[in-house]
Nucleic acid binder design. Sequence first.
DNA 1: CCGGGCTGTGAAAATCCTGTGAACGCAGGG
DNA 2: CCCTGCGTTCACAGGATTTTCACAGCCCGG
Lengths: 266, 266
Amino acid sequence: MNPQQTIRLAVIDTDSGFVTVLSKRAEAAGWQLRIAASAVPPEELVAMKLNALLLDPGVLGEDGWGYLERVCGMLPDLGVIVCTGRSTVAQRVRGLRLGVDDWITKPCHPEEAMARVEAVSRRRRRGRHESELGPLVAGELEIRPDQFQAFVSGESLDLTRREFELLQLLAEAKGQVLEREAIYQRVWGYAMAHGDRSVDVFIRKLRQKLERRSPGWGYIHTHFGVGYRFDPEPVGGTADEALALPEPEPEPEPVSQVVHSSFTPG
Amino acid sequence: MNPQQTIRLAVIDTDSGFVTVLSKRAEAAGWQLRIAASAVPPEELVAMKLNALLLDPGVLGEDGWGYLERVCGMLPDLGVIVCTGRSTVAQRVRGLRLGVDDWITKPCHPEEAMARVEAVSRRRRRGRHESELGPLVAGELEIRPDQFQAFVSGESLDLTRREFELLQLLAEAKGQVLEREAIYQRVWGYAMAHGDRSVDVFIRKLRQKLERRSPGWGYIHTHFGVGYRFDPEPVGGTADEALALPEPEPEPEPVSQVVHSSFTPG
DNA sequence: CCGGGCTGTGAAAATCCTGTGAACGCAGGG
DNA sequence: CCCTGCGTTCACAGGATTTTCACAGCCCGG
């Protein structure tokens, strides 16, 4: 547990008193803050890589509900806290149902606001520990987080950033079938629009680059109607290495952790 | 996918007025409820497989804070909502920092309490990505959500996505008779048109694939005029395996994973 | 014992899904 | 300003999957 996980928070409010006090305390706590006085486009929020968003819908004007809905829909992993003046039960219920995580009433003690931001952010602390530390090996492939790159016997696959992140995500979930929506959500950082084919296109690019450097191995498997699964296996037929290394595991039952240095290729 | 994911909530409170009204609404919404008038040991809460816990620390007595801490510590995936009378900012902050997800003040409109329970459950559910994907076992069958697939002794049934979801739904409701309309609603995500036979057709496909991999067992039973029921049982007569493996359990709930109704009456 | 639903079945028809190649827009570097 | 690398979007083709249909068999009340 990191009790003092640094939090990235954006505040959208014009109540300068509240904002100043909050800013002071938040910065004292080591949080990273962004302040805005009016609606910030969801795309920008994506780019900020926030943990949470604290806003007063009073400053949103007309389309406040629409804005909340868009933000909550596009960034399901973002904690959203509404902090506003008087409101009716119906309004609060509507907001919470839309995807808002907490709704507090001004005047509000900044300490409580911060505690609620923490409460909402507290979750998915699944340390990047293991992934940051060692390179992970799968088949002939070596994925090196420190290089943002993958290699086969020392030769780079020349992956772009996105390609690398996609490959890393799949490889870390080794053996699991990942849905497109989940993949998109975790690599792109926001919800996948219906009908978006980006994931497919990137999978194709990955397969091309993998094939070029490591022919004779299949890494990414398609699960129709669901998504993709990473599981390196020698492709039958012509591969020498495949014959030299008969599949050692008939059914890798334990869906345990990501195993870095698996079986030795030599 | 499932907007109407059924919520399992426990309430610990003695405020009978509040509890009765809340119960009524929650049950109308299809939630599964458990009411208690005093602290419930964390181990029991675990067994209840709850989404959320709503409690008034007033009824906890002396060790209220300790209890909250133990519960939040032992069940990190449980949403905890405190609903109590007047409280100080310091108390609320302390609670939230301890792991409480939301803190609301009585008197409190039940609709808002429910909305907050939903909000907390929603967020909790999203957080646990890879955590709770325990395979279900029934008869010779192993249903693996992480693979979107079912297996019999390691061999895949080659289910399509719809087939898998249907099977999973039935298996999770083990023993219960599910109406076609309900099945359709939960697997397809919208209401079944009158006269639609899709469910029947998929049941047939499932039975075929089950029969191919696990002959000698009957899994899906038809209830005339109602729907279907999942209940694995060795079919009498010619099956060797069935005879070689006499049913070890006469009727009780044997398997660990699929405990659906651990909600004890009373 | 009969008849009107209700369910099982097989196959055709309609849809949906994925792989793929290429065009497009954008941003940074030369 | 042009060129290049990268990510996104489109359109199409080939399959896989789902839905629809017509018919046969089964269940239950009368």
